[in-house]
Structure formats: structure tokens, C-alpha cells
Design a protein around this nucleic acid. Structure first.
Lengths: 307, 307
DNA sequence: AATGATTATTTGACAATAGCAAATATCGAG
DNA sequence: CTCGATATTTGCTATTGTCAAATAATCATT
């Protein structure tokens, strides 16, 4: 990606940070005319929504100073909002839990926060509400550096073939400079598959990560004895977790189960990651031939695997 | 929308608010080991990015207490970061502007903020970075009650044909229960177009909103005298702003410019929004015939327009 | 079981941040 | 010229947050 683009993205993120800071700031220190400060409210929230947490747990989650947190907890206890139960396993810590009074206070806080959000949502048309929440979930998923959930493989669903065409077209254009004819070829393969595939001997797998497609592969009939592997792709978002290997593995297992004697595939020399995946899976390079396609000078390769 | 869904959306927004609060909170009081508090930094930012603003202007923008703001401004002046110039028109106010020293301080702050964002972006794959910024722009636009950005029409880019296939497949499946064969048909049309379209007499338009595709239409050659309009689609995200009309309008204008004598198109009786668009554009229903396709019993319609 | 290192929490002291209300100086309309 | 409104300042105060040291329990090792 070019530097100007990168700077533009950074500027966009910073603009958003400023924007959302004031958006959140409207809630202000004493939020929603409750008797709690923002920090207090967040601590109360954590106590209410965790299973007898310790102060430490909350401190880590919220990034609060331990001393400050300790005082907040003490104040809550004095006010009769929480109880501290000794933890026999470790007598330095306490298990924090709400009292009936605390639950009441939290419920009130929770309700007004709920209502406040409901009000802002109410003025948006339905489609916008959906877009808003989708965008928020997207940001949360992208920025929470929790290890990405493992990708799963599944059957294609409506729209998935289109996704295959789109991602091939966009990715090969940006990474290798392929022109539109390549996307056309992929669309043709997808069309043929959708139009007349033999479910008993042909199949497609979509790799999914957090609800978005990140990879694909097809196994189709080349002849009665020979299967052909096509359209193997792993989106950058799904790379580095052996997805390519898994996709190819599914194909090989399925081909074996179908009674094919051989799998063949066509790829390009420049697609080094894919080549490596094929090699590791047991494919062997059997032919290699330069050609000019998709606006590029390429070296096409045929790989095969006996089953 | 059902109440449970609405509650789910509210919960999603609240979860995001909590999430982003701590995300921003990492910056904390004294952000980026600068000598400025968050409020001070934001005031400095406003002074740097506005044209000699008054204190009042900034106070409104940031929602700060005037007294507090006044002290921040005084401190900045004492530290030699800003100059206050009297405004002859109103001697209660001052025009605030950075000194050389102030510009330096701001540049430093700006740079470290830039770098910090750059770091978080760096660990994301390219596609995710784009998704992130798009999502942020979306939220900003939806929550600042400015008029929604108008969609724009453009030429297709790599991946767009795939998007057309995907959105047709997914949308018609969910809204009308069409089966996979429909997506196959769309893929076939897209493949044919990409493989061999005559740029002088055939064309495709993509409607874009906030950097995402929200609509499409194709005009292709049916015979030397007759053009065919195909694959008109407006995604739910782009509805309600006359996009369908604009897309069809482009087609008609282009067909005229190419010297076609007639435009024809095939649609289904159940697609009421599209039918209305065609009718409004001047198309006339010339034939109607029941058929069974895409797993549904439909009534296909042929519409025409003389040019 | 004694040792030292680590960990969870508490306490004291203090500084930064923020908010309210009253004061000051100016402006604008009549 | 006067009255009400406006932009900013000032005094006062409470809250919020930080830092460092203290306390007490735990853990790993000998």
C-alpha cells in the first residue's frame, strides 16, 4: 500500500478517536445524573457482570491504579453496595459481589445507560442502526488483540461464490497486477460450478473467520478418474494459521473418498505460498510453461498427486 | 424490527462504548508521556487547526467549562505556546494562535499520536485496515447528524464484478428465496461481460457509499440496435436515495449516446421496487410470462423503452 | 521450615483535573 | 444611557487520579 494511503488511514483513525472521545465525553464525569463517577460505574459494572471477581481482575481489565481501585471498593462496601468474601485459597484477595442494594443501584444505572443508547438509536432509520452496530462490532473485533478465533471450514452459502470472484479479482489485481480478464475467468469457473456441479463428486469449501469469508477452495471433476483442485485462496486476514493446508487437506480427503485416482491443478510460479502448500500436501510439479495471460507474463505450472 | 433485535443493537452499542472507552483510556490522563492532559491536548489541537479561534468557540466544540478553559489558555500563554491577539470588533474576546514554540509542541504531540496509531494499524492485515477505517467513517457519519454522504457512481474496479455476483446471490436468496442457480446465472453474465465487453457500446456502473459498493447496473449489446439493461441492484444500505433511478438514468443516457434505438430488459413481477424504477424511467411492459426458475415460481416480464 | 522474591491490597500524601458561582468588562438593542 | 446578554476571569472547592511506600499473604527454593 502506498504511503499516502497509509497516512490517510491514520488520519481517519485519529479523526474517529477525537470524534468518539467527545461522543463519550458527553456522558461526562458524573454520568447520567447517577451518584457514580465514570470509573466507579465501570467498576460496578465489572463486579455485576463477573463471577465474584477479585479487585486485581478488575484493575487489569479497566487499567485502574490499584490504590485508586482499592478506595472505590472500600467506598462501595461502606455504602453497602458490595460484600467482600474472603477467598480461602488466597487470603490476600477477596471475592467481590453485589448486595441486594448494590444490584438495585446497578440495575438503575444499567437501565438509564440502556435508555440513553436507545434514544440515540431511535433517531436513526433501521438500516442505519444495523450499519452502525455492524461497524462497531467490526472495530471491536479488529482492535481487540485477542487471538483471532480459529477459522472454520463450511459449505458455501448464497453470495459465497460471488465472494470467491471478488476476492480473487481484488487480491490478484493488487498483489500481482492481474487485469480484469482474470476475474472473468474466476467468474466463469464459479458460474459453471453453480450451474452444474455434481454434489457427489464435486465440492467447494469456504473458510470463515468471525463470520467473514477468508478463504476458498474447489474440487471438481476433470475426468472420471481425475479430480481438479481450483481457486485456492486465503485472504490476508486469514493467513498464518495454516488455512491453505487445511483447505487442500479437505480436498485430498474428499477426492480419496470419491474414488478419484489423481488430483491435478494449475497454478503460477509466482504464487509461492500456494506452491509451497501444494508441495507440502504431496503434489508434484509435472509441467511448466510460460504464457501471457491476465496482462502479465507468467509461468504456468501443472501439479499432480496420485491417490 | 422486533424488540429483541433492538435490545441486541443497544447491547452492541453499549459494549462498543465500554470497549472504546478503555481503548481511548489507554492514552490516559497524561497522554503519550507528553506534558499535556487530554483536555489540554485537545485545546491545543483546536487552536492549531482553526483559524484564530476564540476561547468560546473551542469551549463549545469541546464542551469544556469556561473557567477551566480560561485557565488552560492562560497556562498556554504563560508557557509561551500561544499568543492572544485582541479582536477589535469585540474586546471581550481574543484570537488565539500558536507561537513558533507552540507549533513545535503541537507538532511533537501530533507526531507521537500519529505514530501510536500507525503502530496499532501496522499489526493489522491490509484488508483489515481498510475495513477498520471504513467502519470508523461509517460510525462518524451516522452519529454526527450530518446529512448522509451521497452515493457516487463509478466504473467497476477489480473485485467489483465479484461483488455484483455476491450481492445478487445473497440478497435474492434472503429476500426472495432464490436458490444457487440464480447466483450462477449472475456469475455467468459477469464472466461474459468481463471476458468480452465492447467498451464503446457496453458498460457497467458501480454505486459506492463511504467506500463500499451499494449498487450496480449493466448496459450490454443485445443487437446492433437494441441494448439490454441487466443486473440492476441497490443494496439495502443504499436504498431510499434514488440510487436505482440514477443507475437506470446513466444507462439510458449512455444507450442514447451509443446510438441504440431501444433498450430492453427482463425482470420479475415480484421485484416491485425495480419495476417501479423502470416504469418511472419510461420503460413499458411488453410481455409477461410465468416460469419456474431459481427454485421459485415467478412471472418474468420484458420491458422496453424506445430511444 | 526458613529464605527471599513476588503478589494483592492498603495507606498516606499529594497533584492534577474539573465544576460552580460570583465578578468583570464589553457588547447590542432600544 | 440603560438593561440584559455575552465572553472571559477569578476564587473557591470537591473530585479524581497518581506515586511510592507499607502490609500481609503466597510461592519457589533450598
Amino acid at each position: 500500500m502506498s504511503q499516502p494511503d497509509r497516512d490517510g488511514q491514520i488520519a481517519a483513525v485519529r479523526a474517529f478517536n477525537r470524534f468518539y472521545t467527545s461522543k463519550l465525553g458527553v456522558l461526562g464525569q458524573h454520568l447520567l445524573k447517577s451518584p457514580f463517577s465514570l470509573s466507579e460505574a465501570r467498576v460496578l459494572y465489572e463486579i455485576a457482570n463477573r463471577d465474584s471477581p477479585s479487585a486485581k481482575e478488575i484493575g487489569i481489565e479497566l487499567g485502574l491504579d490499584p490504590g485508586y481501585l482499592s478506595r472505590i471498593v472500600q467506598k462501595f462496601e461502606q455504602d453497602g453496595l458490595i460484600l467482600r468474601k474472603e477467598l480461602p485459597a488466597d487470603r490476600r484477595q477477596y471475592q467481590l459481589g453485589l448486595t441486594a442494594k448494590g444490584r438495585l443501584a446497578f440495575a438503575k444505572l444499567d437501565r438509564s445507560s440502556h435508555n440513553e443508547v436507545a434514544e440515540t438509536l431511535a433517531i436513526l432509520p433501521q438500516g442505519d442502526r444495523e450499519r452502525l452496530t455492524r461497524a462497531m462490532v467490526t472495530i471491536e473485533r479488529l482492535l481487540s488483540n485477542t487471538a483471532p478465533a480459529a477459522a472454520s471450514l463450511r459449505e458455501p452459502r448464497p453470495g459465497d461464490m460471488g465472494w470467491v470472484v471478488q476476492s480473487h479479482g481484488a487480491l490478484y489485481a493488487s498483489e500481482y497486477g492481474f487485469d480484469a480478464s482474470f476475474e472473468g475467468l474466476v467468474a466463469e469457473i464459479a458460474a459453471k460450478f453453480l450451474g452444474s456441479f455434481d454434489a457427489s463428486r464435486e465440492r467447494c469449501w469456504i473458510a470463515e473467520l468471525d463470520g467473514t469469508q477468508v478463504g476458498s477452495v474447489f474440487l471438481v471433476k476433470h475426468s472420471d478418474d481425475v479430480a481438479k483442485l481450483r481457486l485456492l485462496l486465503v485472504d490476508p486476514a486469514g493467513r498464518g494459521q495454516g488455512l491453505g493446508r487445511r483447505l487442500v487437506g479437505e480436498c485430498v480427503a474428499f477426492a480419496r473418498a470419491c474414488g478419484y485416482r489423481k488430483i491435478t491443478l494449475w497454478t503460477q510460479s509466482i504464487l509461492t505460498a500456494a506452491r509451497k502448500t501444494y508441495q507440502d500436501a504431496g503434489f508434484v510439479l509435472v509441467a511448466s510453461e510460460p504464457h501471457r495471460s491476465f496482462g502479465q507474463s507468467l509461468i504456468g505450472e501443472t501439479w499432480e498427486m496420485k491417490l
